[in-house]
Design a binder for these strands. Structure first.
Lengths: 250, 250
DNA sequence: CACGCTAACTGTTATAGAACTCTTGGATAG
DNA sequence: CTATCCAAGAGTTCTATAACAGTTAGCGTG
């Protein structure tokens, strides 16, 4: 046959397999992967197909390819901070802040059009809606509405989200997140969020819209957060070697 | 021959050509590109090669590919991404946007306390103050006040900052920028900036405070920018071990 | 006239083979 | 013993061909 046998594209399956081997430590950080020709032979695919799998991993920054030299698992110092996908709240926790989470709503329901489009659902499909309020220094600081795609949602819907982060729950359910795309805009506090955040309407806020994808490019979580400007700011560090972005409490 | 003839890979040349045609309006936003098979024929390359060119454009968010339907030029607000050590405006320019700069003030004067602290000046030291307004799509979008440290400032004070970016001027003066640290907060448009930006006071804005350092960790530039929320947003792409950050025009 | 199916598109995934460039380490010449 | 060259091996780019899968317009049929 020429294309996939079962359901998923061949190259995605290979990428997933290699990713698993990297995360399990079978291929250690910094170590070289077998040559492309060798891998393609052992998977029984063409070089082109194997390379397409490697490109997936490269996009996810799991490997680094060096012409003439080899393909390497992302260097240790990077591999150990696999938490670059961490959430805003994880950022704060890491800084030693005590963040409390209150769950204001949890239900499976029809996704609105905008969410359905983001998660690539068919119109009318249901998804898990999770509404949380993050308290911080004794005051509510972030209002967050997350939608989780269906096959995954059923596995995590009964977790206690006051104690477990959404990303931890996803990981426990065997979902590996590979990539996230986030857009941050300034805005004014709207009435709905104002109720939860105990601040006057019209206060300056940051509105963050974030979509998280698995390795096979399926969107799993759509996240919409309203962040009080009086309590939070974004900090970035740029250097030739890289870039970091952190949410910081003020 | 099999690979490139001149210098650059064939698919990159094709990608660059198509990107130019998109930016020039030859292919309008929303319009469909010719089918892949047609394009590959007209460029005289294989379908695979042409597709590799399209992938470049797709990664840059210049096009959207829809199976079965066609390849379309992305709407402008979806477009472009790039991360760099450079300024917000360089980001936009590099992406092909037409950004105009007006210099509203340029003078060597005593640095206020906050600036002096950021640049590690002794109290009373003077520095170059540069006030600029960035116009974008015909409307002012960013109000920016930069302070440049003294030894360097004297070398660049006579440059024409409507045509040359501050970072280019620094590079020309032999100053290599190694690191930048930036803090972004939401805010409301204040009266001073409102005058330059022609927007009502109280509009949502992003306030960016940025300090740029040389290789020897000396702070050279302190930058304070007010960015209209209606025109700009921050986009981040996160992968397992990497992160990119872009300012995007809306 | 409305419905359903087909056919002709579109992008996508795969095969097999070849020649290219960049890096590295070992052999050889000084 | 050092320096240079070169060949083996790595990733990269490309040709040529084929089949798969989603989309849509149009042609019939009821």
């Amino acid at each position: 046959m020429t294309t996939d046998a079962g359901h998923e594209a061949r190259y995605r399956a290979i990428a997933a397999d290699l990713a698993a081997k990297i995360r399990s430590g079978h291929y250690a950080p910094g170590a070289a992967l077998p040559p492309q020709r060798e891998l393609s032979a052992s998977y029984g695919v063409t070089l082109m197909t194997l390379r397409q799998a490697l490109r997936e991993l490269s996009d996810a920054k799991l490997i680094v390819q060096q012409p003439g030299s080899g393909t390497f698992v992302a260097p240790p110092h990077l591999a150990y901070q696999l938490d670059s996908l961490r959430s805003l709240v994880d950022d704060l926790r890491k800084q030693g802040h005590d963040v409390r989470t209150a769950v204001a709503g949890r239900a499976v329901r029809r996704a609105p059009a905008r969410i359905a489009a983001e998660l690539r659902l068919r119109p009318g499909d249901t998804a898990l809606r999770l509404e949380r309020v993050r308290e911080f220094a004794g005051r509510p600081a972030v209002h967050q509405v997350s939608w989780v795609r269906r096959p995954v949602a059923d596995q995590i819907r009964d977790r206690d989200f006051t104690a477990v982060s959404l990303y931890t729950a996803l990981a426990d359910a065997g979902v590996t997140v590979a990539r996230a795309s986030e857009v941050v805009r300034p805005g004014l506090l709207d009435p709905a969020a104002a109720r939860h955040l105990h601040e006057p309407q019209g206060s300056p806020v940051l509105v963050s819209t974030r979509i998280t994808y698995t390795l096979d490019a399926t969107p799993v979580v759509s996240d919409h957060a309203t962040i009080l400007g009086s309590m939070m700011e974004i900090r970035t560090e740029r250097a030739a070697t890289g870039l970091s972005l952190t949410w910081v409490a003020t």
